[in-house]
C-alpha cells in the first residue's frame, strides 16, 4: 500500500479493525501515550477526544499525529523486510601498517566459510571494519570491498550499511529480561516476520540441537549458560537475521557443537568470516586469511592434507570433550582413558 492508500484505509476503518489487521499499530499508540484512545472510531475521529495538551507534549497536534501514524504504517505495516541479495563479497587489497601493498583479490561466495587468523592486534578487526562499512579505498587500509562483483556508490553504501553484517562474539551477552520464547518472538516481530510462531519454534529446536545441555523454552535468556547462550545466538542469526554476511569472533569450546554451528550458518547461504585461533574451526573453513602487520599477508586454501589432519585434531578434541563430560558427571579421570 502507498501512503495514499493508508490514509484512505485509516480514515475508513475503526481503530479496533486497524489493530486487528496491523498489530504493530499498538506500538505506535503506546509510544505516544495513546493506549486509552477510543478504539471504536477511526483514528482521526478518536484523536478528537484526546486533549491537545497530551499531543502537545510530543510536539504534535492532531494533524501532525495523523501524519506520523501514516508514516509509521507505511514503514512498518509492510510484509516481511526485503533483504539485499548478496551472492559474493570481494576484498581488493590496500596497504598494510608498513605501507606495503597487499597483493590480494579475494572473492567469497555465499555459503562459503573463511577464517581469519593472526596474532592479537595484527589487524583482524581492521579487516572486519572494512567489510562492515563497505570500504571504497577511503578507510585507513585503502581496501575496497565489492558486493556481487561491483563497487558501491555512496547511496547504496549507506542503504546497506548496518544491515549487511551480523556479528557474533565471545563477549556478547543477553541483557533483556525475557524468556527464550519471548526473546525469539520479539526478534521475529522486529523482523515483521509473517510466520512468527513457526520461526520461533524452529530457532528454539535448532538452538537445542547445538547446545551441549538442553534447555526449556521458558528459561530466562539471562539464565542460560555460556554455551547455551551462544547456541541460541547462532540459531537466531542463522534463522532470523536478514544480514547476508556473518562475522564471528571465536566460538568458545565448551557447551556447544562448533562444527554443527558453522555448518548451520553456512547452510543458510550466508557469507561467513570467523576470526579464530582454534585449529578445528580454522581448518573447517574453505580458506583462511592470514593477517600480519595490519594487512592481509596471504590467503591459504585448506588443502586435502590439512583436511586429513582435521580428523586427528577432532579426535583430540573429542577426547577432551569426553574428559569434560566425565568431570561433569562426577566420574574419575584415569590415564588409560587416553588409550
Amino acid at each position: 500500500m502507498s501512503t495514499k492508500d493508508f490514509v484512505t484505509y485509516v480514515k475508513s476503518n475503526n481503530l479496533v479493525d486497524v489493530l486487528q489487521d496491523y498489530p504493530i499499530a499498538k506500538d505506535f499508540l503506546a509510544n505516544f501515550r495513546l493506549d486509552a484512545i477510543s478504539k471504536a472510531l477511526p483514528l482521526p475521529q478518536a484523536l478528537e477526544e484526546v486533549e491537545e495538551e497530551t499531543l502537545d507534549e510530543f510536539g504534535l497536534d492532531k494533524h501532525g499525529m495523523l501524519q506520523k501514524f501514516y508514516m509509521f504504517m507505511e514503514n512498518f505495516a509492510q510484509r516481511e523486510e526485503t533483504s539485499t541479495t548478496v551472492s559474493s563479497l570481494t576484498i581488493l587489497g590496500g596497504l598494510n601498517k608498513l605501507k606495503k601493498r597487499e597483493s590480494i583479490e579475494l572473492t567469497i561466495v555465499s555459503g562459503e566459510v573463511v577464517s581469519v587468523v593472526g596474532p592479537t592486534g595484527s589487524g583482524k578487526s581492521r579487516l572486519l571494519n572494512d567489510i562492515e562499512c563497505l570500504a571504497q579505498r577511503d578507510t585507513p587500509t585503502g581496501r575496497q570491498i565489492l558486493i556481487n562483483g561491483e563497487a558501491l556508490d555512496e547511496i547504496q553504501r549507506f542503504e546497506m550499511g548496518g544491515k549487511l553484517v551480523a556479528q557474533l562474539s565471545q563477549n556478547m551477552n543477553f541483557v533483556m529480561d525475557l524468556t527464550v520464547r519471548e526473546f525469539l518472538e520479539k526478534h521475529a516481530n522486529g523482523r515483521l516476520a509473517k510466520n512468527a510462531d513457526e520461526i520461533v519454534e524452529k530457532c528454539f529446536l535448532c538452538a537445542n540441537e547445538l547446545a551441549g545441555e538442553k534447555f526449556p523454552i521458558d528459561t530466562k535468556v539471562t539464565q542460560l549458560s555460556g554455551g547455551q547462550s551462544r547456541a541460541l545466538m547462532i540459531a537466531d542469526t542463522a534463522n532470523m537475521s536478514n544480514s547476508p554476511i556473518i562475522l564471528i569472533d571465536e566460538i568458545e569450546n565448551a557447551g556447544i557443537d562448533r562444527r554443527q554451528a558453522v555448518e548451520l550458518l553456512a547452510k543458510s547461504e550466508k557469507i561467513i568470516l570467523i576470526s579464530t585461533h582454534d585449529p578445528l574451526l580454522a581448518l573447517m573453513a574453505d580458506k583462511r586469511i592470514v593477517i600480519k602487520n595490519g594487512g592481509i599477508d596471504r590467503v591459504i586454501e585448506t588443502s586435502d592434507t590439512e583436511r586429513k589432519s582435521l580428523a586427528a585434531i577432532e579426535k583430540i578434541d573429542n577426547t577432551l570433550q569426553m574428559f569434560r563430560n566425565r568431570l561433569r558427571t562426577g566420574e574419575i579421570i584415569t590415564e588409560d582413558l587416553l588409550r
Binding site: M176, S229, T237
Partner: peptide
C-alpha cells in the same frame, strides 16, 4: 553493541525506528 546479542541489536534498532522513522 559489541556486548549484546545480534538479535538485541536488531530489536533495539527497530524500536528506534518506531519512534524516529526518518
Amino acid at each position: 553493541g559489541d556486548i549484546v546479542s545480534q538479535a538485541e541489536r536488531e530489536v533495539f534498532a527497530f524500536n528506534v525506528k518506531q519512534v524516529n522513522t526518518a
